[in-house]
Structure formats: C-alpha cells, structure tokens
Amino acid sequence: MEQSAPGRPPATEEELAFVEEAAISLERQGLFRMAGRVLAWLLICDPVEQTAGDLVEVLRASKGSVSAATRFLVPSGMVEKISRPGERRDYYRIKEGVWPVLAKSQAEHYQSFVDITEQGLRILRDAPAQRKERLRTMHDFYAWLAKEMPVLWKRWEEEQGARGTGRS
C-alpha cells in the first residue's frame, strides 16, 4: 500500500464523519457510496491532490473499492487524474469549476423532458384528466425549469463575476 506523505496528519474523526455524511447524501442522489466518500474527501483534503494509496489509507477502504470509485469519478468529469513528471503514481483531485458545468449539463436535459412529456400528452389527449395528471405535472415542472434555468445561470455568473472569481 502506498503511504501518505511523511508528516501528513491522519484525517480527524470529525473529517471522516463529514465524509460519511456527504457520501450518504451523494448516495441518495445516485452515486455509489465509495465514490461519494472519495469525492467528499477530495473536497476537504490537504493537499488537494491524493494518490490512490492516500485514499485507501484515509478512507480505510480496499484498493479495489477506491479503484472502482476513481474509475467512475474520472470519466464523469468530477475528478481528474494527473501525473507528475518523474513519479509513477497518479494523483486525483476535484476538477476545477466542475459544479456549474455538471449542473448545466443536467439542465440541458430539461427540454428533452418537456418534449417527451408533450408527446405523451398528445397520445393521451382524449384520456380522462385524472389519467394525464402525473404526466402533466412532470411536463409543467420541466417546462418551468427549462424557462427559469437560463435566468438562474445568468445570475450565478453575474454574482461570481462580482466576487471576482471569473468562474462560471
């Protein structure tokens, strides 16, 4: 097992509790728990770049489970894998600016939900209102999101610009 950098203090119980809480929350959103743990640790770790060995050690996890988590998180775009010249180990870190990018990519699907629910409503046009209600509710919600998200993104970008981050 790779050892963490000499002199690096181990994670505190409070940090590990945060990691577990965050992992459970992310699991509720569809991420598997170990991917959530890796993501949560990468959000708070110091240094910001961690080796697989570091992750195994701090998360008290198997190499296989950390490997599965990083193999999921890297292609998802949330985490990036980097190498350093002269070193054989890879390092993992949260991809800079990932959260707005991920949210925007999810928001791009809203219009497709509107389109498909419109198709369903056309199919059910002669059906009783009660039968169409669930589909109508979904349609109305995603139509609202598709209309409001550009306004929300504009506001986010303006607020970030005002803070001087320049990130969107």
Rank of each mutant, 00 (worst) to 15 (best):
A68N: 11
Q119Y: 09
P47K: 09
P85S: 15
R93C: 10
T70A: 08
L31N: 00
A23L: 06
G53V: 04
E96V: 12
K95A: 12
R93H: 08
R33C: 00
I94Q: 13
M34R: 03
F32Y: 02
P75I: 01
A35F: 01
K104V: 06
L145N: 11
E108C: 07
P9Q: 15
A127V: 05
V114G: 07
G164V: 04
S83Q: 14
E148M: 09
M78L: 15
V151E: 14
P85G: 14
E21V: 04
M78Q: 13
L145K: 15
D126Q: 15
R84V: 13
R37G: 05
R134Q: 13
P10N: 10
G161Q: 12
V38A: 03
R136Q: 13
Q106C: 11
K154V: 08
W153A: 14
P150M: 05
G77Y: 12
M78V: 13
P10Q: 10
G97D: 12
G36P: 01
K63P: 02
M34K: 03
K104G: 03
P10M: 04
G7N: 14
R93T: 13
A68V: 07
M138C: 14
A162V: 11
P150G: 04
K132P: 06
E80T: 11
P9E: 13
D54M: 02
L121R: 02
S4N: 10
C45V: 09
C45Q: 09
W144A: 12
E15S: 12
I116M: 05
Y142C: 09
E148Y: 03
I116Y: 08
R33W: 01
G166H: 07
K154P: 05
T12G: 11
A22F: 00
E157P: 00
L121G: 01
K154T: 15
K63N: 03
E21M: 05
I116G: 03
I123A: 11
R28F: 01
T117L: 03
E49W: 09
T12D: 10
D90W: 07
L43Q: 10
L16V: 02
R60A: 07
V74K: 01
D54T: 01
E87Y: 14
R84P: 04
L26W: 04
L102S: 11
G53C: 03
P47I: 07
E49R: 15
R33G: 00
L121A: 01
V19D: 01
R136L: 13
I123S: 04
A23H: 04
A61S: 13
Q119V: 09
L55R: 01
C45L: 06
I116P: 00
H109C: 09
A35H: 00
A52M: 05
F18A: 08
R37A: 07
D54P: 01
V58N: 01
L124K: 08
L26R: 05
M78S: 13
L39S: 01
A127S: 14
Y91S: 04
V114R: 02
M78Y: 13
Q29P: 00
Q160D: 12
W156P: 00
V66W: 00
A40C: 02
T51R: 08
